[in-house]
């Protein structure tokens, strides 16, 4: 039996994975290597190492202000880390912006989706897709995320939509974009009681299309639904592993860090 090296959790992300050409699967991953981020003299992230393998689902769990969204924005190219590297399929993409990363297969939904005047849901959902998206596909995706096609497809993405509705449309857009890596920043925030069920449906759909899911959350019951999890606190990586293990640890510590800011 051939055993693959353990590469799921960041300790192993060489700069050029092509040297491990005997295993093509190794190349298909998104990595953060020793990533740090500071702003206005304040350190927000320190030495973050994370690896996201293609086809798997991950959650980044942590309390408010832990640096989770900063990690997501660094992965997406919205922020450039002040230290370390971002690697995609073994190649450095640290300096690439949002558009370039999207074109390489990374996309994201933000915690607070923007509103746009004069842009209708139908037009928005077909933006940027490589393939022509048909009405049936739009209907299917809208219904999957719990919105009626008849009621929403022709509506403007403006103030007339609630935060929850905007969030669902953003998730639908991500499904239609079919990225290789889908980053979901707090996908359940602003959603009603059906949020858990919706996340399960999304994960199932992404699993089917082989999309890697990186889910940012502070709810352990949401994190539990992914394959693996990273627990981040005060800008540091505290624990990594199978999501059940990490969530158990998170519950035990009540989401608190076991170290203090400034400790080595």
């Amino acid at each position: 039996m051939f055993l693959f090296p353990t590469v799921g959790f960041g300790q192993f992300c060489p700069e050029n994975l092509k040297t491990y050409s005997y295993e093509n699967f190794l190349i298909k991953m998104l990595c953060l290597r020793n990533v740090g981020y500071s702003k206005d003299g304040r350190t927000i992230l320190r030495s973050i190492n994370m690896t996201f393998r293609e086809g798997m689902s991950y959650s980044i769990l942590g309390p408010n202000g832990a640096g989770k969204s900063t990690i997501a924005r660094i992965l997406m190219g919205e922020l450039t880390p002040t230290e370390g590297q971002v690697l995609l399929d073994g190649k450095e993409v640290t300096g690439l912006g949002v558009t370039e990363r999207t074109r390489r297969g990374i996309s994201m939904t933000w915690q607070e989706p923007a509103r746009y005047e004069g842009i209708r849901v139908r037009e928005y959902l077909t933006l940027g897709g490589k393939l022509k998206i048909g009405e049936d596909e739009i209907r299917d995706v809208l219904e999957l995320i719990g919105l009626s096609y008849e009621f929403y497809a022709g509506r403007f993405i403006d103030k007339s939509l609630s935060g929850g509705e905007r969030k669902r449309i953003e998730l639908a857009s991500l499904l239609l974009l079919r990225p290789r890596y889908a980053i979901l920043d707090e996908p359940d925030s602003g959603l009603d009681i059906t949020a858990g069920e919706l996340i399960e449906k999304l994960l199932a759909r992404f699993r089917k299309t082989g999309t890697t899911v990186i889910l940012i959350t502070h709810h352990e019951e949401i994190a539990e639904k992914t394959d693996f999890a990273y627990f981040v606190c005060a800008g540091r990586l505290v624990k990594k592993g199978f999501s059940r293990e990490v969530v158990d640890y998170y519950r035990k510590t009540c989401g608190r860090c076991l170290f203090v800011e400034g400790s080595p």
Binding site: T102, A114, L127
Partner: peptide
């Protein structure tokens, strides 16, 4: 925010 979120759809 609008710009970045549209760029995450692949637009320049």
């Amino acid at each position: 925010a609008q710009l970045v979120q549209l760029m995450a759809k692949g637009l320049t």
